[in-house]
Write a protein that binds this DNA or RNA. Structure first.
Lengths: 96, 96
DNA sequence: ATCTTTGTTCTATGAATATCGAACAAAGAG
DNA sequence: CTCTTTGTTCGATATTCATAGAACAAAGAT
């Protein structure tokens, strides 16, 4: 097996690992359904999770390039990173 | 959040969990590129893994419905389960 | 200047995961 | 019947992960 293929498999695996938690899937669905940016707090309330836990998941999603973050004063607005989904997960939201 | 949505998120997360390991991605790519069934041993040799490890990954893939298994005498032939991919992971192999 | 809100980071913990070798099982082959 | 091949299961281990609470930080609001 060659190096490039191995790199692709690693990259995909890391993206799928981020998607392997039900709460993170829920976060993405909520963001998608809402159709606009949401705060960490809003999402946390919907999922009934401690804010530290939500922050942990947000970090994972951001790090994998699945979401964008925009800082507005003391709050942080989350949104879907369409580019990543088009490139690596086409039709993801169709299935959702 | 309603029950059906939660169920979908759980189902998707379990599928993605199976895909969150580079070796399992490689296994699927090898199967797809080969275009026909392969034995546990063939795949294991390509990935340089102990047969117990390969067996472990095969079980995970099978359990998630991502592969089919066909027993022929003492060997076992693996193939992609197209139905599952169409339903939950459309265009997966395009990205690969 | 103090209080409130929003989110991050740290620490601890219990659970799950990937890996291997060894033992085991099933089925042909000699 | 014994040997070989193919794969599964078991036991052990090292690593990673999801979660919560506590402490901290930044930025408004009063």
């Amino acid at each position: 097996m060659n190096i490039e293929q191995r790199a692709i498999d690693d990259k995909l695996a890391t993206i799928f690992k981020v998607l392997s938690d039900p709460h993170r899937i829920s976060i993405l669905r909520i963001l998608h359904e809402n159709g606009h940016e949401m705060t960490c707090g809003e999402v946390g309330e919907r999922l009934n999770l401690a804010k530290s836990t939500v922050s942990y998941h947000f970090k994972a999603l951001r790090k994998a390039g699945l979401t964008n973050t925009r800082q507005v004063s003391q709050t942080k607005l989350l949104s879907i990173n369409e580019t990543t989904f088009e490139q690596y997960l086409p039709h993801f939201f169709d299935v959702l």
